[in-house]
Design a protein around this nucleic acid. Structure first.
Lengths: 349, 349
DNA sequence: CTGAAAGCGCTTACAG
DNA sequence: CTGAAAGCGCTTACAG
């Protein structure tokens, strides 16, 4: 029975949707496969004349080396993964860009993924990236159990955690001084005469949220102020929740005269609520905002340097990959208090 | 001569840095390679007992399928590339996230890259992504010649341009109505009594910049106003350049009474400069800003929906990949004028 | 239900 | 200076 002719019967013709390979180039140039490989990779040991012929075939065929195949053979993929919470959050843009730049300097591409603050999705993403055999992984954890990564790390995947430490495993992490920054910010409010100070933060299971709350508590304790439960609110950072929280601590029998906002998502809503109040309420916010200095009053913030965090994490990742067998380390980056007016308002009563 | 023993001599043991393969799993479970493949991919036709043995071997070895190898065989990589200007720019975060979400719905990962507004880097990035054999490419062009992509597109790489059209090739693109938006914004200023209106935009070779300038010119013409050269300034969006441009058109013999800002990078600097002026200068800005409504006065903007743009582009990309052989199309998304105060200020003279 | 062989497109280790 | 063979870790197309 005669075979049905297939498109594959024309092995050296570039078929639509099927890309030319080194084999096609070799056939057209009348040379061996290895010679094509030499030209494509700029290796020495090819006559100028041979090189010209190969190059001609490459151009005519529109050949581009398939890096997937290359990678399969070489072992390293020259790509790193970044799992973060939400690329649309202004904190992660600069962080991601910084990681990208370091990766680029090392010839690597960056695969981004958003966990949407969902631990399952974080795991799914991180493991999908491992299946793609990224050389390394920068993770902003959503979950608090990362033992699922143990086989991957043992297999050689470089890993650095950012913004929050890993759970259940020993790994590098790069953090801001959340505790110290919050403590300093709250102390700043105390220094300006406040005693009833509110704290609105993210969900308590998130490391940064709990650390910043701890900073708040410590600063209050330092000042000898007994904190009332009604002054603290942790939870989701959606506008509705934050608005409710702010309005509650601003009303009632002992309303706060100042608010410490736990992160940039919270801050945008708190600013809106404070603008609606009849009396002036002081504000210090964790995380800087682009137009914070142009508001009236300017927003006093405890700023983190997202780009520096990303850069530090990526540097560390490539140090791991370069074989500097470093012990896992916890790197804490300082925050910076920037006084702009809102944090220097005196108590309204 | 006896061979030197190598680590590879223990083929079924998971070596550090060398990951276990299906072959290792097969050996350990005492089954064939194809059976492992069946279990890993959840295919039918495996006895529960066999499946259990294979699963045990997988867990014991810490096996994870190498998707690079899989991809090489299957043809599609289930990944798409996104080349944008700068991930740290607040316009691109939501756009990128939207592309990611659509990709995720189609089971694909997203590789991000920043061109830094450099045409050479755009090309380098786009071609590197093609070498990785991404299935599709979303590109926010930095350059204006994209013929370098012709072989890739012919070879089947789906391609959608965003924010600016492709140059030299016929390809899908998704744009905002830059001309119409700018025209409407400037007309808004005219309607509030302004005649000397300045325009500060990005470099003229950038499509959005020239289109918005055209919208400005048309609105002025519509109003019968002769535009003076000194009222228009196009160039890099760094603060120093924008500040100089703004200060120049605000001084001199016929200073402008209103400014139309060409994009979000320009706007942040213009707001700063205007805040320093002794007289009130009206402002309408292309692109929304997070705290724009909280400034005093609120900033009137012509808003684009970055997420909708990203979503539309990604949808189109996957429609191409799904084989809907569509003709290249130019999709224009409407903008929205949001009046907040700064655009409704009357002329100061 | 199960598996051996061939092949995806490259690179590596050799040999000429 | 050049190239044939083997192999990276999977899947495909068959055969039993």
């Amino acid at each position: 029975m005669p075979e049905t002719p297939r498109r594959a019967d024309r092995p050296s013709a570039p078929r639509y949707g099927n890309r030319p390979t080194m084999k096609d180039v070799a056939a057209r140039a009348g040379v061996g496969l290895k010679t094509v490989s030499r030209v494509v990779n700029g290796e020495s040991g090819v006559t100028p004349e041979t090189e010209r012929r190969v190059q001609e075939a490459i151009d005519a065929l529109g050949f581009r080396r398939n890096d997937s195949a290359r990678v399969l053979r070489k072992g390293r993929t020259a790509s790193v993964g970044l799992v973060l919470e939400d690329l649309a959050d202004p904190f992660y843009g600069p962080l991601s860009r910084a990681v990208e730049e370091v990766a680029r300097a090392h010839g690597a591409l960056l695969i981004n993924g958003s966990s949407a603050e969902d631990p399952d999705r974080e795991q799914e993403l991180a493991l999908a990236l491992c299946a793609r055999r990224v050389d390394g992984l920068v993770i902003i954890p959503a979950g608090d159990d990362h033992r699922y990564l143990e086989p991957e790390i043992k297999a050689g995947v470089a890993t650095v955690f950012v913004d929050r430490p890993a759970g259940g495993i020993d790994a590098d992490c790069v953090l801001s001084d959340n505790f110290g920054g919050a403590r300093q910010g709250v102390a700043h409010l105390v220094a300006h005469g406040h005693r009833r100070i509110g704290f609105i933060g993210d969900m308590p299971r998130i490391h940064t949220a709990s650390e910043r709350l701890r900073g708040y508590r410590t600063a209050m304790e330092d000042a000898g102020i007994a904190v009332e439960d009604a002054w603290m609110s942790l939870g989701a950072t959606d506008p509705a929740r934050v608005r409710r929280a702010a309005e509650e601590m601003l009303s009632g029998p002992s309303p706060v005269t100042a608010v410490f906002s736990g992160n940039n998502r919270v801050t945008v809503t708190v600013i809106r609520v404070l603008a609606e109040q009849s009396r002036r309420v002081a504000l210090v916010a964790f995380d800087d905002l682009e137009l914070a200095d142009l508001l009236q009053p300017g927003v006093t913030v405890v700023a983190q340097d997202a780009a520096a965090i990303g850069r530090t994490a990526a540097d560390r990742l490539f140090r791991q990959l370069d074989g500097a067998l470093l012990l896992p380390e916890r790197i804490e980056l300082p925050t910076r208090l920037i006084a702009r007016g809102s944090g220097e308002l005196p108590p309204a009563d």
